[in-house]
Nucleic acid binder design. Sequence first.
DNA 1: CTGAAAGCGCTTACAG
DNA 2: CTGAAAGCGCTTACAG
Lengths: 345, 345
Amino acid sequence: MANIDDVARLAGVSKGTVSNVFTQKRGVRKEVAERVLKAAQALNFKPNYWARTLSMKQTSIIGLRMPGENTKFSKFHLSLINGVLQTCFEHGYRLLVNTLATDYQEMPKYMTTNPVDGEIFLDPEHNDARLMQRTELDPPAVVVGRPPEALRHRLCYVDNDNETTAEQVTSYLLELGHRDILFLNTSQQRTVSVDRKRGYEKALIQAGIALKPKLHIFKNPSTPSLDYGFRSIRELVTKGVSFSAVVTDTDKVALGVYRAAAELGLSIPNDISVFAFSDDSVFSPEFHPPLSGVSLNAEELGREAANLLIRRIQDNSAPIVHQTILSNLVVRQSCRNLNSTIIHL
Amino acid sequence: MANIDDVARLAGVSKGTVSNVFTQKRGVRKEVAERVLKAAQALNFKPNYWARTLSMKQTSIIGLRMPGENTKFSKFHLSLINGVLQTCFEHGYRLLVNTLATDYQEMPKYMTTNPVDGEIFLDPEHNDARLMQRTELDPPAVVVGRPPEALRHRLCYVDNDNETTAEQVTSYLLELGHRDILFLNTSQQRTVSVDRKRGYEKALIQAGIALKPKLHIFKNPSTPSLDYGFRSIRELVTKGVSFSAVVTDTDKVALGVYRAAAELGLSIPNDISVFAFSDDSVFSPEFHPPLSGVSLNAEELGREAANLLIRRIQDNSAPIVHQTILSNLVVRQSCRNLNSTIIHL
DNA sequence: CTGAAAGCGCTTACAG
DNA sequence: CTGAAAGCGCTTACAG
């Protein structure tokens, strides 16, 4: 592969001049620039990305970091990533998905600086190792979701108002006359589980309803979403725990609930009402009955997270920002109004 | 940020030795290695990724390239990416999603080498600029899908046997007694559209059925999938074109068909049977009626593409491989058997 | 096993 | 506007 010296020689200029033609940071006489470009083309030359990076100390790459290792992206992540990519596209950044095993990172061989200008952290947890280990020297970061309390004021983040949303969903079900509302929450280590828990309990307490521990379940991180919904319902029903409505973490969990109901011969919404957080599937309307849910606007979360990050990369004096993205309830037909004899629309 | 010299000084060794401790390519006396590691830790030192890359000439990053610009990932891509990431994880690679606008790449400022060891190309098209422009000097590539004919023998690729699958799907519908089978194919510029077209026509011809051009439609790339399904059906029905079955590009297109049918007061499967390629949603079974489709095993496509690529990166004499991933028909309840009066299961 | 030096391929003051 | 030289922070023969 031709390098900058070859081009300089062929064009009859110094390599500084070749560099200037490409970086466009310093003007070069038009005629000279053309000669250089022509020489570059003839030699199939492009500036070496890593050499440039080494001297410029910036990569125009932003990183995306999942919790744990080898986690799979969900559909929520998909929308989020599409949002991130859109912003990347607009600003000329690339996106690097970090998949390195954490024990790799302990090995000297793989212990290196992170080849990005900044990073987006997904699905923060309470004692999030990724976040806790960060030092002042690390590149800028933006979290999607609420960071651990201890780091909250030090980090940029973009989040929905999950507490309020959970409260709204619960209130909605209360208004429909439900009293025993099962909450299939996400796994307890995720910070969002606390926010939703708070909203859920707040609504119940406000309505003067006692909290029943049996009706609030946290996901086991290793259980697939579908099974989580399916098994929880089957188990509770078998045990004779009664509930008339269930709020699920995602529409995939809700799907598990639908399947369990079908197997148990229970009707949705007549026997069980269902409401899902994270209504990120275009298919929810095709559920039978169409599934009510809250739309988190994942794409916007991603877009804004990337925007915040790029702003901080380009201006390290940019302020720490906490941005809230609107989420909205989408009421379809999976919840029954117990106050009337007809099914709630 | 501390560099290798600082560490060498603190540990009282040369920087070559520090390097050896980290790269582990040459043995270092245990006692010395520990001293170096301790010094590194004290200074919060990690080898600089870019500097290492520049001298080693490998990044341990593989690229993912979409066609066109700023395209969004679909659910098919999501599964595929999850497969790629799994392989990356196993081999210690990172994944870089290239989102740069192509006109950026024409600007000297953004014209650089690609910072990856190899690339995976998605959704190949007939005169795919990404592929056509490649030179011998570019890093190894693997295509997911069939490359343009001219490049076929020169490139590794992983693909389903789309022709056979399309033939099977069509035959299945023919066996059910359908004669007017509408095919909502993907956009014409994608190579896969040709394979499916071939399979579809082959089955029809074999059954002695004349091809009706009106019953074979190609997607307009800029039309959203849902609209494509919805509008095509509405338009054809309005125009009085008759068909009893429709094969769609994806389950999202099928969803559009479902909606159009609902609006037109047509029943699925009684009035229209539906069969979808790319059954990559966990939600298809929840359609009403459950949607029959072909599962492309996107995750495996991704896993194998990454495997092939990494093999070629690590051994540039590795052979050019064309790998076929099995796809399988999943028959649910969206197709009617015209030969009997009951609905086909 | 260890050190000193050259080299990877750029960019960037500095001097003209 | 242009050139010569230093520097970015590593790795890798080479010599011991």
